[in-house]
Design a protein around this nucleic acid. Structure first.
Lengths: 326, 326
DNA sequence: TTGTAAGCGTTATCAC
DNA sequence: GTGATAACGCTTACAA
C-alpha cells in the first residue's frame, strides 16, 4: 500500500506538503497542490487512518453498549444513533452486552486502551466503578454519578398512562414490570419512574389500591407460564400499565388466554411505542418513546465532548400512541 | 496516561521487557515479570491499542454493512455476528446503509484506509467495483465475483414452501416479492431463488399458472394501499408464498381486510421465521432462516481470513416453521 | 534474559 | 510556501 512518503517522493515534494494537501491545511501553491493530487490519483493513495489516529490520539470511533439489537426499540435506537454519528463523521462500534457484565467490562476497557474515543452506555448493571470518568461517556436510562444522562420522560409517561386509563373508566389498576433489582442493587433505575409516575398520580387522586407486580429483569422476555403465575390472583383488575410493549404483549396474550377480552374487560397500555411490521393482531396502545429524538440527544452530547463544549443531561418527551388495547 | 516507557522506567527495565510481559511473549525472568506487573498495577498502565494497531497494521475491527438494524432478522443477525466475533477477540463496527450507496462507499473505503480489517457485506446495491478484493470481505445473500459468499438455502426454501402448500391442498398459487431489480441491474439476487425454487418445483409437477407478483425493493416495508393494488386482481388464489414475513404480514392484513380468511380461504407462507415479541395475532407460517447459523458461517470465514486459511462459500439450511397462516 | 533501536504512517513545529 | 524532523506508543529483530 502506498504511503505518504511514496506520494512525496513521486511528486518531488516533502511529506509535510502532501499532508497539507490531503488535509487542506496551511499554504500550498496551486501548482504544487495539483501535482500532488495527480500523484495521489495515480498511485491510488489513501491516508492510513491508523497512523492518523496514532498522531491525533483519537480515532473517531464511539462504542454503544446495549443489551441487544434484537428488540425493536434497541434496534431502532441503534439505527438512529449510527445515522446521527455518521453525519458528524464518527463511526459506531456495537456491543450487545446481553446484560453480561463481563462483556460490558471489556467494552468499557476500550475507553482506557484507546480502542474507542467515547462510550454510549445502556445497561442495568452497576458498572459505575468501571467507567473512566475522564473520558466521554453518555448513559441512557440509567444514572451514574458524573456521567451525562439521557432518558425519556418515564415519570411523565407513567402519569400519562394513569390518566388515560382513568379517562377510559378503569377502576382497579395494576402496574407490571421487570424492574426488580433485588437486594443487591438499591438503586432506582430510570424505568422504575414509569411505575412511580403511574402510582403517584393515582395515589394523588385517592386511589391507593394499585396492584404492583414486580419481577426480575430477564432477557426482556417473559414466558407465558410465568405471566400466568403473576396475573392469576388479580381477576378484578381492569386497567393495566405494563413497563414495556413486550411485557404488555405477554400480559394481553395471557388475559385473552384466560377468557378476558382486551380492551373490553381489561384495558392495557404498554411502553415503547414499538412498531412491529410482523404484527397481525391488535396494535398495542402505548406510551411511545422516540428513538430518533433520543439518538439525537445522545449524539449531541458525544459531539459536544469532541468539540470540548459543556454537556448536560437531557429528558426526552414521550407520546401517547393510540392502539387497540385500551 | 501512562505508557510503556513509564512502566519500563519505573520498573528499571527496558521497554522490550515490558512488552514481553504484557504480551506473554519471549523469555522473561520470573522476578522481572513480577516487578513489571507490580508497576503496571501501581500506575494503572493499559497498553494503547492505537499504537498496537500501528505496529501490527491491524486493529481487529470488522465492519458490518447492512440495510438496517430495525428489522427483526437483521437485528438478530447483527446480534449473533457481534457475539461470535467477540468470542474470537474481534470488534464490530456497524453501518446501517439504508441501501444508500453513498454510505456503503464510505464504509467500504474503511477497508482501504485501514479503519477496519475486514467487511461483512449485506447489500442490494451493485458495489462490486468498490470492493477492495485484496482485503477480507464476506457477502451475505448477494454474490460478488471473488468474494466469499454465505446464504440461506433460498432455493430449497422455495421448494419447501411449494410442497407445503400442495400438501395443504392449495390449487392456485402466487409468489409475491420485492425482488424486482429493474432493468439497470441484470443480476439475479439471491432472494430471487426463493421465487425460482417455488416456481420451478410447481412447474416440475405440471403447475404452470403460478401468479408472480414482483415489486421493487423499498425500505423493506409495504404500504396497505400498495398491497391492495397488487392483490386485487387475483381473487382465486388460495396459496401464497411471500418473499419475507414482513411481506406476508402485509399480504395477510390485506386479505383479511378484503374478507378472506387466513388460512381457511387462503394459506400464506412467509420467509425468515421472524419471532416478534410484540405479535398479538396469528403467528406467520414461515420458512425460517437461522441467524445464528448464518452468523457462525460468516464469522468463521472472517476468522479464516485472519488466520490466513482458505475460505469458501457456505449455504445454510432453512427450516419449516409452523404457524397459524397455512 | 534483557536492552537498544528501527519502524509502523501520520501530523505539526520550526527553520529556511 | 515548503521540507526536515520530532513525536505518537507500540512490537520485534538483533546485539549483548
Amino acid at each position: 500500500m502506498a504511503n505518504i512518503k511514496d506520494v512525496a517522493l513521486k511528486a518531488g515534494v516533502g511529506i509535510a506538503t502532501v499532508s497539507r494537501v490531503i488535509n487542506n491545511s496551511g499554504y500550498v501553491k496551486r501548482e504544487t497542490r495539483e501535482k500532488v493530487e495527480k500523484v495521489i490519483k495515480e498511485i491510488d493513495y489513501v491516508p492510513n487512518e491508523i497512523a492518523r489516529s496514532m498522531t491525533l490520539q483519537q480515532n473517531n470511533i464511539v462504542a454503544f453498549i446495549l443489551p441487544n439489537s434484537t428488540h425493536l426499540f434497541f434496534g431502532e435506537l441503534l439505527y438512529f444513533v449510527e445515522a446521527e454519528l455518521f453525519e458528524h463523521g464518527y463511526k459506531l462500534m456495537i456491543c450487545n452486552s446481553s446484560e453480561q457484565i463481563a462483556k460490558e467490562i471489556v467494552y468499557l476497557e476500550m475507553l482506557k486502551n484507546n480502542r474507542v474515543d467515547a462510550v454510549i452506555l445502556l445497561t442495568n448493571n452497576d458498572v459505575d466503578s468501571l467507567i473512566d470518568k475522564s473520558k466521554p461517556v453518555v448513559s441512557f436510562d440509567r444514572r451514574f454519578e458524573g456521567v451525562p444522562f439521557v432518558a425519556s420522560d418515564n415519570y411523565g409517561g407513567g402519569e400519562m398512562a394513569a390518566k388515560k386509563l382513568l379517562e377510559l373508566g378503569c377502576k382497579k389498576f395494576m402496574f407490571i414490570g421487570d424492574d426488580a433489582q433485588g437486594d443487591a442493587s438499591p438503586v432506582i433505575t430510570e424505568v422504575t419512574n414509569r411505575r412511580l409516575g403511574f402510582n403517584n398520580y393515582l395515589n394523588s387522586i385517592g386511589i391507593n389500591d394499585v396492584i404492583n407486580i414486580e419481577y426480575p429483569l430477564g432477557d426482556y422476555i417473559v414466558s407465558a407460564e410465568y405471566v400466568h403465575g403473576l396475573l392469576k390472583n388479580y381477576s378484578d383488575v381492569d386497567g393495566i400499565f405494563a413497563i414495556s410493549d413486550a411485557a404488555a404483549a405477554a400480559v394481553i396474550r395471557e388475559l385473552e388466554h384466560t377468557g378476558k377480552r382486551v380492551p373490553e374487560d381489561v384495558k392495557v397500555i404498554g411502553f415503547d411505542g414499538g412498531r412491529s411490521f410482523l404484527n397481525l393482531g391488535k396494535k398495542i396502545t402505548s406510551i411511545g418513546q422516540s428513538p430518533e429524538l433520543i439518538a439525537e440527544a445522545i449524539c449531541s452530547i458525544i459531539v459536544s465532548y469532541y468539540n470540548k463544549e459543556a454537556v448536560e443531561d437531557k429528558i426526552i418527551p414521550v407520546f401517547f400512541e393510540p392502539g387497540d388495547t385500551a
